[in-house]
Simulated assay, not measured.
Amino acid sequence: MANVYLKEAIRTMETSSGTAANYEYASTSCQGWRNTQEDVHLILPNFDSDTSLFAVFDGHNGIEVAAYVAKYLPEYIRQNRKYKRGRVSEGLKEAFCLLDGQLLLVDAVNELRAIRRQAHPELPEYKPGITSGCTAVVCLLKKDTFYCASIGDTRCVLCRNGKAFPLSIDNKPDDANECARIMKAGGEVVHGRINKLINVSRAFGDHMFKMVPNMSTIEQMIIPLPDVIIEPYIESTDSFMVLMCDGIWNSMDNSEVIDFVGSRIQKKMPLAKITEEVIKNVLPKEMPPSGIKGKDNMTICVIKFKGKRGGVGSTNMSAMPRTTVRGNNGPNKHH
């Protein structure tokens, strides 16, 4: 297998920033020590009339699935009938599953191949979407409510009362429910990896793990069905939100990231500089001799709330309960 690491890290950072009506945002990505950049992210302030979308997609074995999903998932969500009818959590789950099935169609496969050839001309082609995939975290801020859907181990963390408040759940093969499903589908979990190969249990793509006959989409070893956390935005306590891939949180845990970002916001540092400071803090000057810290692609998005969002004030948001909609409570079959 080709070496996945470079002799010298690529330290170039791609940073963007902007301002919306009720928040400002910045994002930074860096390839780092990996021989390819496989992260993609989205910030769509005007996703629909009352909703913003924030997302990070972390590819593995190529960028093609992450790039494809980033291109098409927003429209899959926007056009979903359940989403249009206000059943946001159900709409997110259905959109994830429908788009994942789309990856097997001829037109999609051809597009995946084209993305891979353009992004990774030096790498073997393999079977895009079969041997490659991506994790995802997608957070909708709809009026005054967060709807955060996630598969795999990309994360969304809110700063609430100055502390880390997770809006996503990691899906790992050695989690009890995930392991039980994997084993029922004929797989095994060894050292936290399915069949010794992959260390996430939910993802787009990776269809080599989704081909067990007579089992539904959500019964396979790897599934695209997200957990969805529904949480009110509380103006008095919620100051900013971070979306990040595991290349960040492998080196800094949720609390460390929130403290790092929060302390610099208090010092009035521009958000774009803060996101770059996170990357600099994580990316080592020399290749670590062992472990995974500091070796992966790195992407972080920070959304800083201005405070006065439309709708807040008419409802006592602090009295609204947190809701977690686990993916395994979804429908049994997706067509």
Rank of each mutant, 00 (worst) to 15 (best):
N80H: 09
N161K: 11
K163H: 12
L167E: 12
N80K: 02
L99H: 12
A108N: 08
I169D: 02
C134V: 02
A67Y: 04
S132T: 11
V65M: 04
G101R: 07
A67E: 15
R181N: 08
L99V: 08
I130K: 00
Y72F: 15
Y147T: 01
V106D: 15
A203V: 07
G86A: 07
L99E: 14
R155V: 03
G133K: 04
L92H: 05
R160P: 07
Y83T: 02
I77W: 09
D144K: 06
F165R: 00
F165I: 00
L167W: 11
F96G: 01
R181D: 01
D107A: 10
T135D: 02
K172N: 09
C134Y: 02
C139W: 09
L167I: 07
R78T: 00
F96A: 03
N61T: 11
C97R: 00
A136N: 02
L103T: 08
P74D: 07
R81D: 14
G86M: 10
G129T: 04
G162C: 06
G205C: 08
P128I: 06
G101C: 11
R193K: 11
I77R: 10
D175T: 05
R85Y: 11
H207K: 02
A164L: 13
K93T: 03
V190L: 14
V65E: 01
K196E: 14
F165A: 00
A95V: 03
N195A: 11
L105W: 06
K163E: 13
V137P: 01
Y83M: 02
A149S: 06
S168N: 03
P121E: 03
D175Y: 14
D174Q: 15
Y72N: 05
L158F: 03
V137Q: 01
P173C: 04
G62H: 08
S168I: 02
Y147M: 01
H120Q: 10
R193D: 00
V138W: 01
R116H: 15
D153H: 05
I77V: 14
G192R: 05
E75M: 12
R155F: 04
R202T: 03
Y72W: 10
E75I: 12
L105H: 13
I194D: 08
K163D: 06
K172E: 11
P121Y: 13
V88A: 08
P173F: 05
K172Q: 12
N199A: 08
I151M: 09
R193Y: 01
G59Y: 09
C97M: 02
A67I: 06
K127E: 14
A164Q: 12
K71V: 10
V88I: 15
